[in-house]
Design a protein around this nucleic acid. Structure first.
Lengths: 346, 346
DNA sequence: CCGATTTACTAAAACGGTTTAGGCGATCGT
DNA sequence: ACGATCGCCTAAACCGTTTTAGTAAATCGG
């Protein structure tokens, strides 16, 4: 009925619990004959060490956690996390680690953290002074911050969000667009600030626009989903003040804008230029293919995992320089052809 | 330096370990004054119960595992798993559970299973007689099978793969296509069989084709990634025996075929019709939008999680009927216009 | 042939919680 | 005034491993 324990194996094989433990973890400390016998008995009984007991005793669970600040159903609607996990996964498999997804439970990320039996955490998009990270510090779990801000207490993996955003805005401006719209992310869970990443992107957009002396952009709030992008498009000004270029903060939102615009009769990019952010794989297949800011997501995952594993081994690690972003120009952006521009051209 | 334990809190508050435990798990068993004091001390010391110790003692870890038969980097390249996790995630958050990803470690799924401290498993695409499931049974961990075959020992969640596949094939045949190609999945980890799902889809394609009396299709092996679909297209016959319609086993592979075909100068759907499987969200945005067999992936995840949670509570559960699939016709399929057909028409 | 190693194994102490079975005053009913 | 009940708290057992410290027998060098 009940689970077979190490004691069962020990008594069945006529040895001590220690011997059984050695058979699995320290075989060279046992005589050949007993080793064989113990292993055989264990096999027959179908013995498997209890993972929690093992974790308690060894102070290591063989798992690393991904701290996710939003609900799984919203965050997995964006391919970003899939890509990141591909990178994390490579390193995890290399080091025999499994990956635990830790979203807020009952809205509390801290509660979820306590419940999670992990050897280290990858934190996604949390500000370094988030209270959830305070909990981690107190417990003393090694942590690597991804998409955060430089922190004295944890290594941080970032990309050059600001530079990418500037390049995107400059691209649109260079194409002659003067009436721009920015899709701003809704406030994050901290309820007062947005995520550090979103802040940097927004700042990049604004800086490039200000430097070019272009009119201030129209801002509209949108989440990172396709649906959010679509409804953001709906709330954009129409007619004379209609933006001719929109800067999104994710590819998903950009795709939402594109499809909503097309459904409303606008042509992309002829009537409306749209640029995304991230360069998830799907961006290359959309109609038209999306112009977007590329960030190396898989590489980011690999790097974060590598750093975390170092830290878990006790080695100190420094935050690497932000990874490069680059503008990839596809089919969703084109020269502005709005009235103002046409008049000037003549 | 070391972690603060329940004993530390107990002695600091001048009570027994039991009292501290009660303060958190059984507050009504403590007097008001002591309760406050213990909670206060715990807060000051930054006490957090050790998850592994808790799991060992309570025989429950608050985690369910997803048994993934392939490497994370390959399986997350397909949005299918993202969708499924969205469904699983809803129920998990509702029941305060976290989600552990369990891929093979050193190629061994069984080893990974042993390491994982979970209260239940969702198995993806494993045949009911897979040896990994044998390990689970021996340990006695509740398990729900997704994309498998009916099993006497575990509840199973499936969709009507066969029916969907038949509809897809019938659709192409109805459009006049006579030279078809099927993208078969490569053999699964069991090395001898494919996954049950792939078998059912293949059988569905074959049955519809045979019933229609259409020439046997050309089969070519392809994984579930875009790249695999693209290289599968490359190995298709050219010229006179060129297929005019291809049936893929996933949307990703279908998208790969479409892009490769377009790159080679063919027009989709005019020169080549392609139908996918799954209806992941991206299928709606591709160029052209993909005709595909829809399966309710998120719903499938929700259902699987619901069943597993029931089983974890000890309630017996029966396998539900397969979920419905449906053909959604978009822009990647059109009437055949190959030479044979044009001749007949005149 | 005798003390010093080495080999092969074990008893018991962690690891850090929860839970069972009571203990001990204070209050209750009568 | 006295046994029963109740409210509050605790000692000790338990969950299932790993690991430390050590023992008895076998092997060694000289």
């Amino acid at each position: 009925m009940s689970r077979v324990t190490i004691a069962d194996v020990a008594s069945a094989a006529g040895v001590s619990k220690t011997a059984v433990s050695f058979a699995f973890n320290n075989p060279e400390r046992l005589g050949h004959a007993t080793l064989e016998r113990v292993l055989g008995v264990a096999q027959d009984l179908g013995y498997t060490p209890h993972p929690a007991a093992r974790a308690l005793s060894m102070r290591r669970s063989g798992t690393i956690g991904i701290l996710i600040p939003q609900r799984l159903s919203t965050v997995f609607a964006n391919p970003f996390l899939s890509e990141l996990i591909q990178g994390l996964g490579e390193l995890c498999e290399e080091h025999d680690l499994t990956l635990l997804l830790v979203p807020p439970l009952n809205g509390s990320l801290e509660g979820a953290i306590r419940q999670a039996s992990v050897d280290g955490f990858i934190s996604l998009g949390l500000s370094p002074d988030d209270s959830a990270l305070g909990v981690l510090d107190r417990i003393g779990i090694p942590t690597v911050l991804v998409d955060s801000e430089d922190s004295p207490s944890h290594p941080t993996v970032n990309v050059d969000d600001g530079g990418g955003a500037r390049a995107a805005a400059a691209h649109l401006i260079g194409l002659g667009h003067r009436q721009l719209a920015i899709l701003v992310l809704p406030p994050a869970r901290s309820q007062v600030h947005s995520t550090p990443t979103a802040e940097r992107r927004l700042a990049g957009y604004r800086a490039a626009i200000a430097e070019a002396g272009v009119p201030a952009p129209h801002s509209v709030i949108a989440g990172i989903s396709v649906a959010a992008g679509a409804s953001a498009f709906a709330s954009l000004p129409k007619g004379k003040r209609r933006p001719t270029g929109v800067l999104a903060m994710s590819d998903m939102a950009a795709i939402g804008v594109v499809t909503a615009a097309q459904a409303s009769g606008l042509r992309v990019p002829d009537d409306l230029s749209v640029v995304g952010f991230d360069d998830v794989p799907a961006s290359a297949w959309t109609n038209p293919p999306l112009t977007t800011v590329r960030q190396p997501i898989v590489e980011k995952g690999r790097l974060a995992a590598r750093l975390l594993i170092q830290r878990m081994k006790g080695k100190p690690v420094a935050s690497p320089a932000p990874l490069k972003t680059s503008l990839v120009i596809r089919g969703s952006t084109a020269p502005a052809t709005n009235l103002d521009l046409r008049i000037k051209r003549r």
